[in-house]
C-alpha cells in the first residue's frame, strides 16, 4: 500500500518512544488504517456508533473525576480516576494536549474491567482509533461496549 507523507509521519509517531514509552500499536504489525477499518466494522456489527462510544466514555470520565476520594459507583459501573503530572499529545498531530490520567471501570454485572485515558477518547471520536492489539491502552471495541453500556 502506498502511503502519503502524512500517514508515514503518523505511523512513526505511533511507534514506541515517540509520544509514549510503548507506543500506540503494541504488537500489532498492521498499518494503523487497517486497525481502524477492522474496529469500525466491528462497531457497526455490534450496532453502535463511534459517537455513542465517545459520548459514553466522556460521561464516565466526568463522573469518575467528580469523586476525588477514590472509586465511585455509577449504575452498574465502579469507576476510579487516576491523575498524573504532565500532558501528552495526539499521534495524529492534532493541536492541543491531553491530561496524563487514566480511568478504570469495572462492570459489576459481567465483571468486565478496563481502563482508558483522555487521549483515548479523542483518538476514538476524531480518528476512530482504538490502538493496536497489545498496546497498553488498546480498547477492544467488543470488550469496551460490554463494559461501558
Amino acid at each position: 500500500m502506498k502511503q502519503t507523507t502524512k500517514e508515514i509521519q503518523i505511523q512513526k509517531r505511533m511507534q514506541l518512544g515517540n509520544i509514549s514509552a510503548d507506543g500506540f500499536l503494541g504488537k500489532d504489525k498492521r498499518h494503523y488504517l487497517d486497525i481502524i477499518a477492522e474496529d469500525e466494522n466491528k462497531i457497526l456489527e455490534l450496532d453502535y456508533t463511534i459517537d455513542q462510544i465517545a459520548d459514553r466514555l466522556e460521561e464516565l470520565t466526568a463522573e469518575a473525576f467528580k469523586s476525588p476520594e477514590g472509586p465511585t459507583n455509577f449504575g452498574t459501573l465502579t469507576l476510579d480516576y487516576f491523575s498524573y503530572r504532565g500532558k501528552v499529545t495526539c499521534p495524529f498531530a492534532d493541536p492541543g494536549v491531553y491530561a496524563k490520567a487514566k480511568v478504570t471501570a469495572r462492570n459489576t454485572e459481567n465483571d468486565v474491567q478496563l481502563c482508558w485515558t483522555p487521549l483515548n477518547i479523542h483518538l476514538i471520536r476524531k480518528h476512530h482509533f482504538f490502538e493496536g492489539k497489545g498496546a497498553e491502552f488498546r480498547l477492544d471495541p467488543e470488550q469496551l461496549i460490554k463494559c461501558i453500556f
Binding site: G17, S20, A21, Y84, R85, K100, K102, E136
Partner: peptide, 11 residues
C-alpha cells in the same frame, strides 16, 4: 519521581 504509565522519562 513517580512512575507514569507509558511515561518515556519515568520508565
Amino acid at each position: 519521581i513517580r512512575r507514569v504509565p507509558e511515561g518515556i522519562c519515568t520508565t
